[in-house]
Design a protein around this nucleic acid. Sequence first.
DNA 1: CTTGAACCTCACGCCGCGTCAGGGTGTACC
DNA 2: GGTACACCCTGACGCGGCGTGAGGTTCAAG
Lengths: 255, 255
Amino acid sequence: MPKTGERVWKAGELAARTGLTVRTLHHYDAIGLLSPSGRTGSAHGPGHRLYTAADLARLQQILSLKQLGFGLDEVREYLSRDDYDPRRVVRLHLARVTGQADELRKLADRLAALADALDKAEAVSADDFLNTVREITMVEQYYTQEQLEQLAARKEQVGQARVDEVQAEWPRLMAEVQSAMDARTDPADPKAQALARRWFGLVAEFTGGDPGIFKSLKKMYETEDKVHDMDVKAMRPMMEWVGQAAAAAGIELPG
Amino acid sequence: MPKTGERVWKAGELAARTGLTVRTLHHYDAIGLLSPSGRTGSAHGPGHRLYTAADLARLQQILSLKQLGFGLDEVREYLSRDDYDPRRVVRLHLARVTGQADELRKLADRLAALADALDKAEAVSADDFLNTVREITMVEQYYTQEQLEQLAARKEQVGQARVDEVQAEWPRLMAEVQSAMDARTDPADPKAQALARRWFGLVAEFTGGDPGIFKSLKKMYETEDKVHDMDVKAMRPMMEWVGQAAAAAGIELPG
DNA sequence: CTTGAACCTCACGCCGCGTCAGGGTGTACC
DNA sequence: GGTACACCCTGACGCGGCGTGAGGTTCAAG
C-alpha cells in the first residue's frame, strides 16, 4: 500500500537496477523475504508488483547480507529481529566461511599434486590416472581431518631424522618376521614375542598411542593392497602372526 | 552375477567399510554409478544387493574421484570412457576449484573487515550493523570482478600519491562547481566548460577511460546516497549541471 | 518356526533460483 | 475504441547428493 503519488517500481525495473532477475524477486516474495508494498489493481488476475522506496532499501540490505554469504533465511532473521548480537553472528559466519575456504584450498593442493604427478609421467593411461588419484586421496580416506593434524604435529615433534630411521627399519623388521615365519617359529616363542614388541613399538611411534589413529591405520592396511609403494597385501599374514605373538607377550594394543 | 563361491558383501557391510551410508549406495545404484553385480534370490520383492570385489574396487575409484571434488556424473564419465586426457581434465578442474577457493577467501576477507569494524565501534545496533555491512559490500555490487582488478591495477600504476591528490582535489572542485551554480552561471559559459573539463578529467583518471567502469561508477552514484562518506546525493544536481557543461564543451564521455 | 536386525522400494525435502508453459496487463499508437 | 506488443503474472518441474521417514520383505540365528 504505497502512498498515492509515491514513486514506485515494477519488478522489471527493480531487476534492472539491482542486476537480479524478475524470477528472483518472485522467489523473495514467495519465501516472505521481500514482498512488494503494493500491486496494480487488475480486473481478473493478481496485479503487477509495485515496490516502494522502502522496499528498495530493504532489497539493498538483503543483497548486502547475501553478498556476505548468508543464507536467505538467515537474512530474513537478521532483518526482522534486532535482538541478536551482530558481532557474534559475523564471527560465527566468518568461522564457517574460513573453514570452507580451507577445505577448498586443501582440495586445490591435492589437485595440484595430482597435476604434477601426471606431468612427470610421459604417457598417462586411464589406469595410470586412476592409480595416481588413488595414491593421492588414499590417506584422506582413512584418517579424519583431526587425525591428520595430530600426525603432522607428531612428525614435527619427533623430527624428520627419526621418521627416516623408522622408514628404514620397517623392511628389516619385516624380513626378520618373514624368516621367523618361514622357520615355523611359534608365535608364543620368546623370539617371536621380541619381534612383536619391536613391531608394535614402531607402530606406536607412528600413532603416538592414539587409539583412533591406530584403528584408522589398521583399517587402511586391511583394506588397501598397496600403501606408499609398500606391499601391504603381503604384510597381512605377518600382521596376523605378529598379532598372535603380541597376545602371547601380553602387549596391550591401543585398539 | 558373481561367480558361485566368490566373496560378496551386502550393502551394510560395504557402507561400514567405506564410511558411506546404505542410502548412498542405493543412490549410486539408482543413478547407474555403481550397481551391485548380484542380488539374493527372493520370493516376492527384489533381493538384497550383493557386491563383488570388482564392485568394491570400482567404489574405491569413485570415492577417490569424489574426494577430488568431481561431480558424480563426471566420475561416471571418467570410469566409463578412457578416451579423454586426464591432464586436461585435472587442470580444468583445478582451475575451477582454485576459482572457488579465491571467491571464498575474498568473502572471508570481507567478513574479517566487517568483524574488525564492528569491534571498533562500542555499541552496535542492528542499524549500525546493516550500515557497516552496506559500506563493505557496496563496491562489489556495482563493479564486476574484472573491473575491480582493472581498478586495482590502475591504482598500482598511478601510485598512491596521485590517488591522494585526486581525493583531495574533489572537494575543492565540488565547492567551485557549487558556487558557480549558486551564481547561476550558464553551463555553456566558458568557465563552466573549464570546470567540466577538470571534472571529467578526474573521472577519467579514475576509470582509465574504460566505458564499463564509467557506467558502473555512474550507476553507483545515481543509486547510492553515500559512497565512502561522500554525500553523493548532494552531488547529483552538480552532476547534471556539469553534464550540460560538458555537452556544451563537446567533451566526449566514455559511456 | 519365530524373532529381530538388516534389507528393500517409493517419495518428499533441501537451497536458490533457472526455465518453460499458458495466460493476463499496461501503455502507445492508430 | 481497438490492437499491438512488451511486460507482467502464477504454477510446476529441475538441479546435486543424498537425509529421512514410511511401510513392507528377507536373511540368519536360535
